Simulated assay, not measured.
Amino acid sequence: MSKTTPATIALTAAGVAFATATYEYDPDADRVGLQAAEAMGVLPSIVLKTLMAEVDGRPVCVVVPSDEEVNMKKLAAAFGGKSAHMMKPADAERLTGYKVGGISPFGQKRLVPTAVEELATLEDEVFCNGGQRGLQIRIKPDDLIAALGARAVDLIR
C-alpha cells in the first residue's frame, strides 16, 4: 500500500505534523470507521469519519467520530443553512477524487467548507482517513482543524 496520497502530500506541503497507520480494510464492513478502529485497536471515538453532505444544495465536508451520527439540523445550522442531507456516494467520489471508504478531508479535488465535531478537540490525537482504503492519518485535533480551515462545532448532539 502506498502511503503517498493527495492527503499526505497536502499535509506535508502545509508543514503539518502527522503520522500514518495502516489496517486491513474490510470491504464488507457495515461501518468503515468502526472497522478501522477495531482493526487498529483504538477507541472508535478517536477514529474520525469523513462525510460529504449538502447544505441548501452546497457541498460541505463533515468530520465526526466513527461511533456517532450527524444531526442534520445541526449540520445545516453549522453552515448557515436550512436543510442538509448526505451526498450520494458517486457524487462524493467525483467531488473529492477519493473512493468511498477512503475519503479524506485533506487533499480533496475541490476545497469545500468543513466542520469538525467539537468533541474531537478533547482528544490528544485523532485518526482520519488518509485518502486510501486501509490508510489512516494520526494527527492532533488542532492541527486537523487548522489544516482544513475548518470550524469545531456541535454536529451530533
Rank of each mutant, 00 (worst) to 15 (best):
L95I: 01
H85C: 07
R58C: 02
V42E: 05
G80R: 07
V60Y: 02
V16L: 02
G102C: 12
T4H: 08
Q136Y: 08
Q132V: 07
E38M: 09
L48W: 06
V55W: 05
Q35C: 10
D142Y: 03
K109C: 02
A21N: 11
A53N: 08
D142M: 09
V47K: 01
R157N: 13
A29R: 09
E117T: 04
S45I: 07
D91H: 12
A29D: 14
E117P: 00
V70Q: 09
S2G: 10
G41S: 10
G101W: 08
H85E: 10
G131F: 04
V47M: 03
E125N: 06
G130N: 04
T50I: 03
A120C: 03
D28P: 07
R157E: 14
P113M: 04
S45L: 06
M86F: 12
T20N: 12
I137G: 01
D28H: 13
T114R: 03
M72V: 12
A90L: 12
E24T: 13
D30Q: 15
A13K: 15
M72H: 06
A39Y: 15
D124K: 12
L111F: 12
G80D: 05
M87A: 12
G134E: 02
L95F: 08
R58T: 01
P65E: 06
T8N: 08
G97C: 07
Q35M: 12
R151G: 00
P105D: 14
E125H: 14
R157K: 12
Y98C: 01
A77P: 00
I46M: 12
V42C: 04
P44M: 02
G149H: 03
F18Q: 04
Q108E: 04
E38H: 14
A90H: 12
A7V: 03
F127R: 04
A10P: 01
V16R: 06
K99T: 11
F127L: 12
D28N: 14
Q136S: 07
S83H: 14
I46Q: 11
A120R: 01
I9L: 11
I103D: 00
L122R: 15
E68L: 15
H85R: 13
E69C: 04
L95K: 10
A92T: 04
S45A: 11
V32I: 06
A21F: 10
A10S: 15
D26M: 07
Q108H: 06
L144Q: 08
A14K: 10
D154Q: 13
D26Q: 10
D124M: 08
